[in-house]
C-alpha cells in the first residue's frame, strides 16, 4: 500500500509540472525508503509463502522432523489431482458454492443498499445493525449457526416441527447441508456487498437523475437505465472481492460439517487442509491450494474482461 502511494505521489508531481525537479526526486527517494520496510514485510508474509507453496506443489516433498525436504521436480502432484474424483468434486462444489452465494449476495446487497440510501431517519443505526453479521468472526457465527441447525435440539428444527414440517436434520444430508451453509454465508456477507454498493450509490451524479425525471422517466426505468448501469463498476468490485473470498471458503464447512456429509461440503480449501495437515502430504496439498489460486485468478481475470468496458466508460465520465 505504502509503495503504491509513493509512486502515485511521484506521478502526480510529474503531471502537474510536466518535468521532474530535484525536490520531487528526493521525495520519490524518501517514498521508497519509507516503503521498503512494508515491502520487505509483504515479501516475507505474502510473496515468500506463495512462492514456497508453488515450489512444494512441484516437488516430491518429504516431511521429516527437521522440516520439509524438497526432493526433485515433479508434475505428479498435479496429475494426482486431475485423477482424483475427490478433487474434481471439491472443484465443482467450490465453483457452485461461489456462484450461488455471490449471486444471491449481490442481488440482496444491492436491494438493501437501495433501501438504506433512501432512509432519512436512523440510517446510521441501520448501518450498524446491518454490519453486525459481517463483524462477527466467521468461526463464532458458524458455531451459532451450528446451534440453529443442530439435529436434536436445534432452534430451526424446533420451528419446523412446530409448523408441521417434520424434523429435518439440516446438516445431515448433502443438499440441505449445502443450502444451510449457503444461508449462513449469505447472512454474513450480504452486508459487505450492501456497504460497497451504498458507497457507489452515494457517489452517483444527481444531474443525470434530474434530467431523467424532467424527461418523465418512471422509477423503474430510472433504476434499470441509470442506477444499475452506473453502479456496475461498484458491483464489479463487490463481486470480485466476494468471489475471491467465497472461493477460499474454509471456516464455515470446517465448523458446520467438517466437509461432510460424506464429502458433500468439502471445498478446495478444506481438501487442501486435509491433504496437507491430516495426511501430511504437503506436495499434493500444495497442489490443491495452488490449483485453487490459479483457477480463481483466471476466473477473476475473465470476469474483469467482461466488465472492463463498463469500468473504462465510467472512468472516462
Amino acid at each position: 500500500m505504502a509503495a503504491v502511494t509513493g509512486v502515485d505521489s511521484v506521478v502526480k508531481v510529474m503531471d502537474k509540472r510536466g518535468h521532474r525537479d530535484v525536490h520531487s526526486l528526493r521525495q520519490a527517494r524518501i517514498g521508497w525508503m519509507f516503503s521498503t520496510p512494508a515491502l520487505v514485510f509483504i515479501g516475507l508474509v505474502t510473496i515468500f509463502p506463495i512462492g514456497f507453496s508453488v515450489a512444494l506443489s512441484l516437488s516430491n516433498v518429504n516431511v521429516t522432523g527437521n522440516g520439509f525436504a524438497l526432493q526433485g521436480f515433479t508434475f505428479s502432484n498435479y496429475s494426482q489431482l486431475i485423477h482424483s474424483s475427490t478433487w474434481r468434486y471439491a472443484l465443482v462444489f467450490t465453483v457452485f458454492y461461489t456462484v450461488v452465494t455471490v449471486a444471491v449476495e449481490v442481488v440482496l446487497g444491492t436491494m438493501i443498499a437501495l433501501v438504506l440510501e433512501r432512509l432519512t431517519k436512523a440510517r446510521g443505526m441501520m448501518m450498524a445493525l446491518l454490519l453486525l453479521p459481517w463483524s462477527i468472526i466467521t468461526v463464532i457465527s458458524a458455531e451459532l449457526w451450528q446451534y440453529i441447525y443442530e439435529g436434536t435440539y436445534g432452534v430451526l428444527q424446533a420451528i419446523f416441527q412446530s409448523i408441521g414440517l417434520g424434523a429435518p436434520v439440516f446438516l445431515g444430508s448433502p443438499t440441505s447441508a449445502i443450502i444451510s451453509m449457503m444461508v449462513a454465508d449469505i447472512w454474513k456477507t450480504t452486508p459487505f456487498v450492501a456497504v460497497i454498493v451504498i458507497a457507489g450509490l452515494v457517489m452517483l451524479p444527481s444531474d443525470v437523475y434530474e434530467a431523467a425525471s424532467c424527461d418523465g422517466a418512471s422509477n423503474w426505468t430510472i433504476f434499470w437505465k441509470i442506477t444499475l448501469p452506473l453502479l456496475r463498476p461498484t458491483i464489479a468490485i463487490a463481486v470480485l472481492f466476494r468471489v475471491l473470498q467465497a472461493f477460499g471458503v474454509f471456516d464455515l464447512p470446517f465448523v458446520l460439517t467438517g466437509g461432510g456429509p460424506g464429502t458433500a461440503t468439502t471445498s478446495l480449501a478444506i481438501l487442501s487442509y486435509k491433504v496437507m495437515f491430516q495426511n501430511i502430504d504437503y506436495g499434493p496439498g500444495a497442489a490443491v491450494a495452488v490449483s485453487a489460486t490459479l483457477l480463481v485468478i483466471l476466473g477473476c481475470l475473465l470476469f474483469l474482461r467482461v466488465f472492463k468496458t463498463q469500468v473504462g466508460r465510467e472512468e472516462v465520465q
Binding site: G172, S173, P174, G259, G260, P261, G262, T263, A264, K274, Q278, N279, I280, D281
Partner: peptide, 21 residues
Amino acid sequence: NYPQLSNAIYTNVNAALSGSM
C-alpha cells in the same frame, strides 16, 4: 497412510448413513 485410509472409510460410510449414496 492411515489418515487417508480412515478418510476413505468415514466419508463414504457417512454418505451411506445419510442416504446420499
